[in-house]
Write a protein that binds this DNA or RNA. Structure first.
Length: 844
DNA sequence: ACATCCCGCCAGATC
DNA sequence: GATCTGGCGGGATGT
């Protein structure tokens, strides 16, 4: 397969090369020009790359012309394309010169930025919805003479800004800048929520301090305050990076959105790559993990920057700091972003990210009768839901190493079944409701149309509301699906920002406790100050232990598959060390940790994780010991906290927190009640406050929906200490595994519940409803199988459908990487994003 | 030497 | 199983 892919790529490159060669032949180029003029190449709609030639008749053409004029390189490139195309048609002899040709092109000529320019030149900023704005990656790749891989990079960034949306495999829909302002506004808001500005300041300050004095202690102190916040946020967000979810969490889309957020919240709208990378990665990790990660992040940021630069949203600059001159980017995009439009009725309009396709998918396909065939492939998920569930169960149960999984099994069957049943009903309801919503939306649209955004692309996306609509406000049920832009990452952090209508217990910092190892090693200690800070934050309404954070921890544990593998590879040698570390850590933790353990529940770790321990005998031994140790601790903790054990809402929250620790993707803790409380405002746009539901988008299966409840106060102090230490993913994973082995006591501690929960499937609906029934539900834990996001989605839908049902369930959704959303309430538009897009409008 | 970032391997996700 | 996606990082190129 790979070979095949490679071949394909090679072919592409070959073509490119040949084209390049052709480039030399100016005459040929001219011919091409003529051809272009004659007609669009492959995609008429797109306007083909003719740009260079300049097609006066279309905006795109004009744009192209301008670009070409501005950049000879672009022009040449265009020519090359044309030429190459001709060559292709005529002959393929070019291969010989491929290499040479390739080399001939300067690096700049092959830059992503230039490529993006070319790409953008093909489409109008404000596309006519009536026209077919579909983008075929293959066509684009061919036309632009680049490998598909490069196109993905561009598409990912554009998608993060909702300038395009994925329709189906190999297919995207172009939205242009119509929704850009809205999207940016959303991102800005998200950035504010995440306190990125603080993070930036923190980092800057820290750098300054570092330069001035290398004193370790001081640094430590510094960390306490904002840094902690930053870390939390970052980590939480990073969590995405971390693993679990799928690599998608680390996707360029998420990074791009975060990156943009940094600009939007930073006072001097200048962000250095270093700062951005740190924030995106999390300083701890940066410090701790080799710099490779940092380097990689920087590389990615360059990729993103190139695209954003092409969009003219940022501009490269250099900032001079104490340490010297550093590359940075300055925001040159729109400055005054307002969410006004966004706030429009949530229900009516799909989020900026929403695309016609998504809407269509949701409305037409998804919610159509389950049995119906869906035009969109992704919708298969619905159809396959049952199958997926079963598969998941099977997998889970089969998982040799994870006891937890096994547990989930028994109940799963029923759980799934019931869910399915619900699903059908929900779908039905949803359809009905949808019809109503559509009408409403249409009405609203008229009003809202104030914004020039053409939302619905072609065919009736009746549902497709203008971008403006996205209101953050309580997203309609469907909206939940609607990607408000919050990228996966986003979802993580926002928790902190959200206002909690209900007095909920302070968030627990359980997550932190999970992080055993501080990157800084010895330095990390539990610092009382940090605890204090946490509390303060809580008071302020920040949630230190944001779900995101938790996730982060979890995620970190899981990490990307690739990484996991690496880790596993090394596990043999590392395990002993890890064990030691863990033990030491545990000792340290003993007193403090209370809830952190919960993470342990994570039991159900990915197979990979599971493998590690098992594979390595030594590890097993260590594990046993660790387990013992943990168990003991856990018991102690339980005894201490046992009061909390009772399954009251609060308890649930706690559990949730604990759950958070669980590796994302697998267990998802959802607190229902809180959600319910929030949910009430389906229509209200109140951005800021209602937000009862959060839409957590996780590209990966396991997004955790942090409920307000999640933040329980009581445990905080305990967790805090650990928190400081940055978790070593490997260690965390290891630990989690061990913990997993340890059983959880149901109520007593944090995590246990989740693991025990039988149902692997995250069905919001079920969860909520069941809340009272099963322990699982009560805990809000959901076991999500990373493997089948689709399943999750479908499950979610049901919840969507029953928006008003009032039950909490609906509020939480699990987003698979693909679709995410959670909207508790409303529901006007059903939207199922094929992929999760990122922006959330959640809070309101 | 350092900044950029292209290239394409390779694994997870989808079809 | 084939193909699509896209994370990732080696290493080339530019400054």
């Amino acid at each position: 397969m790979y070979n095949a892919v490679k071949k394909r790529w090679k072919m592409t490159s070959t073509l490119s090369d040949s084209r390049q060669l052709n480039q030399k032949f100016e005459a040929v180029a001219h011919d091409k020009e003529a051809k272009r003029i004659m007609g669009p190449l492959s995609t008429p709609t797109k306007g083909s790359e003719v740009a260079g030639g300049g097609e006066p008749w279309t905006p795109t053409s004009n744009l192209k012309m301008l670009i070409s004029a501005a950049s000879p390189e672009i022009r040449n490139r265009e020519k090359e394309k044309t030429v190459s195309e001709e060559l292709e048609n005529s002959s393929q002899d070019t291969e010989q010169g491929e290499e040479s040709e390739r080399l001939q092109l300067s690096r700049k000529e092959k830059s992503l930025g230039l490529l993006c320019h070319k790409f953008l030149a093909r489409y109008p900023d404000d596309p006519n919805p009536a026209v077919n704005n579909d983008i075929c990656l293959d066509d684009v790749a061919v036309e632009l003479n680049v490998e598909r891989r490069r196109i993905y990079d561009i598409m990912n960034v554009l998608e993060s800004l909702n300038m395009v949306s994925r329709l189906a495999k190999n297919r995207y829909t172009w939205h242009g800048r119509a929704q850009l302002a809205h999207t940016l506004a959303l991102l800005q808001r998200e950035g504010e929520k995440h306190h990125y500005n603080q993070q930036i300041q923190q980092i800057r300050q820290r750098h300054a301090d570092d330069v001035l004095e290398m004193d370790g202690e001081e640094k430590e102190n510094e960390d306490t305050d904002l840094e902690i916040t930053l870390r939390e946020t970052v980590l939480s967000e990073t969590s995405a990076d971390a693993k679990g979810a799928s690599r998608k969490d680390k996707s360029l889309r998420v990074m791009s959105q975060k990156f943009v957020m940094l600009f939007l919240v930073s006072s001097p709208r200048v962000v250095s790559l270093e700062t951005a990378a740190k924030i995106l990665i999390g300083e701890d990790q940066v410090v701790d993990q080799d710099k490779s990660k940092f380097k990689t992040k920087i590389r990615r940021l360059y990729d993103i920057s190139n695209v954003l630069s092409s969009l003219k949203l940022i501009q490269k600059v250099h900032v001079t700091e104490l340490r010297g001159r550093k590359p940075a980017f300055k925001w040159t995009g729109p400055e005054n972003l307002s969410l006004q439009g966004l706030q429009v009725e949530p229900s009516s309009c799909p989020g900026p990210l929403e695309s016609r396709s998504s809407i269509d998918n949701c409305t037409k396909n998804l919610f159509c009768s389950p049995g119906t065939k869906r035009g969109f492939t992704r919708h298969h998920s619905l159809v396959k839901l049952a199958k997926s569930i079963q598969d998941d169960r099977r997998k889970i149960s089969s998982a040799p190493t994870s006891p937890v999984k096994i547990t989930s099994d028994s109940a799963n069957g029923r759980f799934c079944t019931s869910k399915m049943d619900h699903l059908a009903e929900i779908c039905k309801m949803q359809l009905d409701q949808q019809a109503v919503n559509v009408q409403k939306q249409s009405n609203q649209k008229d009003e809202e149309k104030s914004s020039p955004v053409p939302r619905s692309m072609t065919s009736g996306a009746e549902a497709c509301p203008p971008t403006v609509q996205l209101s953050f406000a309580p997203p309609p049920p469907c909206c939940s699906l609607v990607p408000v832009l919050l990228p996966h990452a986003v979802y993580v952090s926002h928790t902190p920002v959200r206002p909690r209508p209900i007095a909920r217990p302070p968030p627990s910092t359980a997550v932190r406790s999970m992080t055993f190892e501080s990157p800084r090693g010895a330095n990390t200690k539990v610092s009382p100050p940090s605890v204090t800070i946490t509390n303060q934050r809580l008071l302020h309404g920040y949630e230190p232990a944001s779900p995101a954070l938790k996730r982060t921890c979890l995620t970190s544990l899981e990490r990307s598959p690739a990484k996991i593998k690496r880790i596993e590879t090394n596990s043999k040698s590392l395990s002993p060390k890890l064990c030691q570390i863990l033990q030491a850590r545990l000792k340290d933790r003993r007193g403090a940790l209370t809830s952190s353990r919960a993470s342990a529940r994570a039991l159900h770790l990915e197979p990979e994780f599971n493998k590690t321990p098992h594979n390595n005998p030594d590890t097993l031994e260590h594990n046993t010991e660790l387990q013992h140790f943990l168990e003991t601790e856990e018991r102690e903790e339980k005894s201490q906290n046992h009061t909390q054990a009772t399954p009251t809402p609060q308890d649930s929250n706690r559990h949730t927190n604990t759950e958070t620790l669980i590796p994302t993707g697998y267990l998802i803790p959802i607190s229902q009640q809180p959600l319910l409380s929030f949910k009430e405002t389906p229509t209200s746009s109140g951005d800021a406050h209602k937000t009862p539901t959060y839409i957590y988008h996780t590209p990966t299966a396991g997004s955790i929906a942090p409920s307000p409840q999640e933040f329980t106060p009581s445990p905080l102090p305990v967790h805090r200490p650990t928190h400081r230490v940055s978790p070593n993913p490997s260690i965390l994973n290891f630990t989690l595994q061990n913990l997993a082995l340890i059983h959880n006591t149901h109520g007593a501690t944090h995590m246990a519940p989740a693991a025990e929960q039988p149902s692997p499937i995250p069905c919001t609906h079920t969860l909520h409803t069941s809340h009272a029934h099963t322990p699982l539900q009560s805990h809000g834990m959901i076991f999500i199988k990373p493997v089948s996001p689709l399943t999750l989605i479908s499950l979610q839908q049901p919840s969507l459908t029953t928006p008003k049902s009032g039950s909490a369930p609906q509020q939480c959704f699990f987003h698979t990487p693909v679709s995410t959303m959670v909207t508790p309430t409303a529901n006007k538009s059903l939207y199922i994003p094929q992929r999760k897009l990122d922006v959330n409008s959640e809070e309101h």
